[in-house]
Design a protein around this nucleic acid. Structure first.
Length: 855
DNA sequence: ATAGGGTTAG
């Protein structure tokens, strides 16, 4: 026994080596303990330790006749463990077990209490690795480690697990959990599984999270929780990894997991990914369940047609839509502003309700109310309220908010106030959002003072809530009197004071949020100092201004005519650590445009593109308004550039501002004449809905070409007004070039169209021809001659020479635009209508114009 | 572990 002590003390420190640190630097992968628990330290299980020692091996002691006393060995081993000498404990245990003589007796005689004391000390002194090595060593000998744990040791282990779980090393935690699981420790008693998962999510370790989940019986549910948590953390990449990992662990498709990952796609704003996952299911011939369908529709509700397609497919495969499906369809209608469709869905769902197939719920009514609120159909919204009440569905705060919002959007403060009162009387407590909606109603109706008074009264009541009981009577009556003065006919303003009178004070849920302050900032009108003060107040209230706050402030500066100040706020915003977004830039651009700083507007636009901030339709339209007065050709070209950029970005514009700009710019060539283009436009209504991109492209092409080349203006396919614009644009170009010293090379040719006998288009083409001749001759005094129509048969050079009598065949064929023109014409046996304006005539016109402007 | 509400830019 003494010898043993000596042996162990000499070998303990050198042979009992904890497993290597499983904590590699985070960037270093693969990690040594990624998949396997560390191997138990080899010296422990090796008898070499003992054979190399000075004392006789333990088994000789056993052989000497002590073997018939396994209890003694058990007592001894237990004592050693209690002292923390695990190596010696294991040495004895190993020898006994190896000898095979009555090892069961030995094991049974081990004293869990004593062993636990030793383990507890190890754990308390944070020697978790040493303890783990002990557990594994014990287990290797066929002794259940769990058996050696007393209740108190278990609770110390649990505390230690919780401590590690409270740390920040996901890998270490999962490693430990896997070992304990392998040793059949009850993990759920040691830790809260969600705590471990939270760490893995925090550390963005999806594989770790899944590995851990696999240790627990409810793994499938935990997989979903993991996917959802990553989704909520806006980490779709990790959510997808967790999803794929969990698929590997499962035998069949898990609809919960599919729904979770689809929801995660929605949370992370990647609805295309959700579609891929859905397609993956379809490809594997798996029919999704109603939850998967609903989630998919919900995530894609921004895209009404896709949502409807999914809905149809769902019906085709025989999955019954539930009320949630219809609510999502309504949401999709709401987002796309399709009131008509929403009404259809509403009717259908009511029909289904009458047959008992389903029941409309508070979501249905709230969503339909929102549809009407957004469309400013407040009466319809109120009608939904009646429907709801008669169906016995109780409106909740959200429903009331939508109703108030319906009135707010229509600028009906009184109506909104009434609804608010009704809500309070119905026992529905307004929350901050609901209060914000009412404040918004005041702002929409420009009742700014009212908004501020409401805010003050609510804020007051909110702060009083903790010490209602201490208020003395006089104070209460003063406050009540103040409230009634504010709005004598309104319950709203006295809402707070009513609460103060009641014996048990109700909780006032109004806590101003950033949105509250944003709305109030809007209520500052053009008073930017007040808005700025509100923003400071917001910060002292512990709230932080967001993008919207800054955008509103920029807008207020602009509204007060202070464009420089507005741009300065944009800079301050950056300094405050908020990167301006599209809206902030667009607001600043708007301010510049409205305050006649087009150059600044364009430079802000360039700046935002430099920061990779994608302009949206509003940005483009705002910017295109910048040049409302015709300027230089460069400015028009700049606008055309914006326009083309816009189309490249996939926006279909109505081209309104640009067309206006070009018209104005073009009309500049005849500004002395008392003609008004407006008259022309109003006369031509039929083509108003036609996309004008053809016109704009043509103008752009001509403006980029030099007028020193031969000028051929193709008016085919254009309306009367468009043809006029193109011709004027070319003339304006010629004029600007002439002013800067460039000469005209050739006569100008205008292709009117290809005459096709017996077609309806003729009348229109004649109209264009007449309008252009009138423009050239009457308005501009140019000499325009109608070239005799020529047959355009398959002979290239024939048409070419007809367009360019002086040019050689090679010259004609070298020009792509002419080649295309010829090819186009050759397809039809028709004659080309052309107008010619001679070089001479153009020069006369130019001198006349220049002379006029000089006067 | 699903579905609904308020604020910003034309």
């Amino acid at each position: 026994m003494r010898e043993l002590v000596i042996i162990s003390s000499s070998s303990s420190s050198s042979t009992f080596i904890p497993p290597p640190n499983p904590k590699p630097p985070h960037h270093h992968k693969p990690k040594p303990y990624h998949f396997k628990p560390p191997p138990p330290p080899p010296p422990l299980s090796s008898s070499a330790t003992f054979s190399s020692s000075k004392s006789p091996p333990l088994h000789t002691n056993l052989a000497r006749g002590n073997a018939n006393q396994p209890n003694n060995f058990a007592v001894l081993a237990s004592q050693l463990a209690q002292e923390g000498r695990f190596e010696d404990f294991l040495a004895i245990a190993e020898t006994v077990v190896d000898s095979g003589v009555e090892s069961d007796k030995f094991v049974n005689a081990l004293d869990a209490k004593s062993v636990s004391v030793g383990i507890e000390r190890e754990l308390r002194e944070r020697r978790i690795r040493r303890s783990v090595a002990f557990f594994t060593g014990v287990e290797k000998l066929g002794i259940s480690a769990l058996r050696l744990f007393s209740g108190s040791a278990m609770s110390v282990l649990a505390a230690e697990c919780r401590r590690i779980a409270g740390g920040d090393d996901a890998e270490e935690v999962v490693w430990l959990m896997e070992i304990l699981h392998g040793l059949q420790f009850p993990l759920r008693e040691l830790v809260d599984p969600m705590d471990i998962i939270k760490i893995c999510v925090e550390k963005r370790e999806p594989e770790m999270a899944v590995r851990f989940a696999c240790l627990l019986p409810q793994a499938e549910i935990l997989f979903c929780a993991i996917i959802c948590k990553f989704g909520k953390r806006n980490d779709l990449t990790s959510a997808l990894v967790a999803f794929e990992e969990s698929k590997k662990k499962l035998s069949g498709p898990n609809m919960f997991a599919y729904r979770s990952i689809i929801d995660a796609c929605g949370l992370c704003g990647d609805c295309l990914k959700s579609r891929h996952i859905y397609e993956e299911l379809l490809a594997e011939k798996i029919t999704p369940n109603i939850y998967v369908f609903n989630s998919l529709m919900n995530v894609n509700s921004q895209d009404l047609s896709y949502t409807l397609d999914v809905y149809k497919h769902m019906q085709n495969v025989g999955v019954m839509a539930d009320i949630a499906s219809y609510n999502i369809l309504l949401k999709a209608c709401c987002l796309s502003g399709r009131v008509d469709l929403a009404q259809d869905v509403y009717r259908e769902v009511k029909q289904l309700e009458s047959t008992g197939a389903l029941k409309l719920d508070v979501f249905t009514y709230s969503t339909v109310t929102k549809v009407f609120a957004d469309a400013k159909l407040w009466k319809m919204a109120l009608k939904i309220k009646e429907d709801m009440l008669s169906a016995g569905v109780v409106p909740n705060t959200v429903t009331w908010s939508s109703l108030i919002s319906a009135c707010a959007n229509s600028g009906l403060v009184e109506q909104a106030t009434k609804l608010f009162e009704e809500m309070v009387l119905a026992g529905c407590e307004p929350n901050s959002r609901c209060c914000n909606t009412l404040l918004h109603a005041c702002v929409e109706a420009c009742q700014y003072d009212r908004a501020f008074r409401l805010f003050q009264s609510w804020k007051g009541s909110g702060y009083q809530e903790t010490y209602f009981g201490d208020l003395d009577g006089s104070r209460v009556s003063i406050m009540a009197a103040e409230s009634t003065c504010l709005d004598s006919n309104s319950l709203v303003s006295s809402y707070a004071s009513n609460l103060q009178f009641s014996k048990s004070p109700k909780r006032v849920n109004f806590m101003p949020t950033t949105t509250t302050y944003n709305i109030l900032m809007k209520a500052c009108g053009t008073n930017y100092n007040r808005a700025k003060a509100l923003m400071e107040e917001m910060e002292t209230a512990g709230l932080s201004p967001n993008h919207i706050s800054w955008s509103i402030l920029i807008d207020i500066y602009g509204a007060s005519g202070n464009a420089e100040g507005a741009v300065q706020i944009l800079r301050t915003m950056c300094e405050a650590g908020i990167q301006p977004d599209v809206v902030a830039y667009t607001t600043a651009i708007k301010v510049c445009v409205e305050n006649k700083h087009p150059k600044m507007a364009f430079s802000l636009f360039a700046e935002m593109k430099g920061y990779q901030i994608k302009p949206n339709l509003v940005t483009y339209n705002t910017l295109l308004r910048a040049r409302s007065k015709y300027g230089s050709v460069d400015e028009v070209l700049q606008c055309l550039g914006i326009y083309q950029d816009m189309r490249k970005a996939g926006y279909k514009s109505n081209d309104h501002y640009l067309k206006e700009l070009i018209e104005e710019w073009c009309e500049g060539v005849i500004q002395d004449n008392n003609r008004r283009l407006g008259q022309f436009i109003s006369r031509e209504r039929s083509d108003l809905r036609r996309p004008q991109s053809l016109l704009l492209e043509k103008v752009a092409t001509h403006l980029r070409k030099s007028t020193t080349e031969s000028i051929v203006v193709d008016l085919q396919g254009l309306t009367k007004v468009e043809a006029r614009i193109v011709v004027l644009a070319v003339l304006r170009m010629i004029k600007e070039n002439y002013t800067s010293g460039l000469r005209i090379k050739d006569d100008m040719l205008i292709i009117l169209g290809v005459e096709r006998v017996g077609q309806d288009t003729i009348r229109h083409e004649v109209e264009v021809k007449d309008a252009i001749i009138k423009l050239l001759q009457n308005e501009l005094g140019l000499e325009a001659t109608l070239a005799r129509p020529r047959a355009a048969h398959g002979n290239f050079t024939q048409l070419g020479t007809s367009l360019y009598p002086d040019a050689s065949t090679e010259e004609i064929l070298a020009r792509k635009d002419i080649r295309e023109e010829i090819e186009f014409s050759t397809r039809r046996p028709a004659s080309v209508q052309r107008l010619k304006v001679t070089k001479k005539s153009l020069y006369e016109w130019l001198r006349r114009r220049v002379g006029t402007t000089k006067r």
